[in-house]
Amino acid sequence: MPFSVNSPILFILAGIVIAYVLGQSIFFLVKAWRRAIELGIEKKVLRKIASGSALFTVAPAVAVLLGLISLSRFLGLPLPWLRLSVLGALTYELPAAASVATIIDLPLDQPVTDASTYLSIAYVMTLGILAGILIILFFQKRMQQSLQKLKKKDNRWSALLMDALFMGMIATFLGMVFADIRSGLRGWIPVFVMLFSASVMLLIGILIRKCKIAWLENYAMPLSMLSAMAFAVPLTNWIGG
């Protein structure tokens, strides 16, 4: 069969893998949903969680779609579709593909025409990212057992430990937002966007508490995020990004 980065057979292969992972997501969703009801969590709350999570995902997913577009110029559609639908993220996939392209001096804005090179890139992308998933496969149970033991021993510290883990991650990204401020006013754009997003979140929080608009809670994060992203457009035009 003649090779092409957009060969129908590659779409079929990628589609089968994506369908499997989609099935896995549905399976876990059903099991967790049933268990949540057994635990006494109201269906109303679960529906709120599901719809809010769906809405929250839209903006980051569209950003992933942008990544798919940029990778597709080099690798066609099936491989980026597969890698970005499951397992990967653009921050991993692009450098992995670029590392092979650099070795043989391939331009990243033209489709790969050599099947062997394409397959080499696919192998590097696959093997390069397996560490995390293998550790979860072999160590997740042990990690959870250790956390359960800790919880039994000191419940308050166990809760604080989880808060500390989350805060550590959030603090890293909050710090990263300031990385470019020394480059002038342009470097402050992410800081202003972050502050705008936090302010909208705060305002929605006040509306929920003071004006008793409970339904807003589910939309607080997507609304804050999307309004801050929209705010970035005129702000960048004004400052001159």
Binding site: I18, V21, L22, S25, I26, F28, L29, K31, A32, W33, R35, A36, L39, I41, L46, I49, A50, S53, A54, F56, T57, V58, P60, A61, V62, V64, L65, L68, L77, W81, L84, S85, L147, Q148, K151, S158, A159, M162
Partner: peptide
């Protein structure tokens, strides 16, 4: 680190991955 937290986290991640898959599929 509670069972309630575990199921809620699983539901959020499952929905998020289903929505991402659909957006990428239709986007493509």
């Amino acid at each position: 680190n509670t069972e309630e937290g575990e199921v809620i986290s699983t539901i959020a991640i499952a929905v998020s991955s289903i929505v991402t898959t659909l957006i990428l599929f239709f986007g493509m």
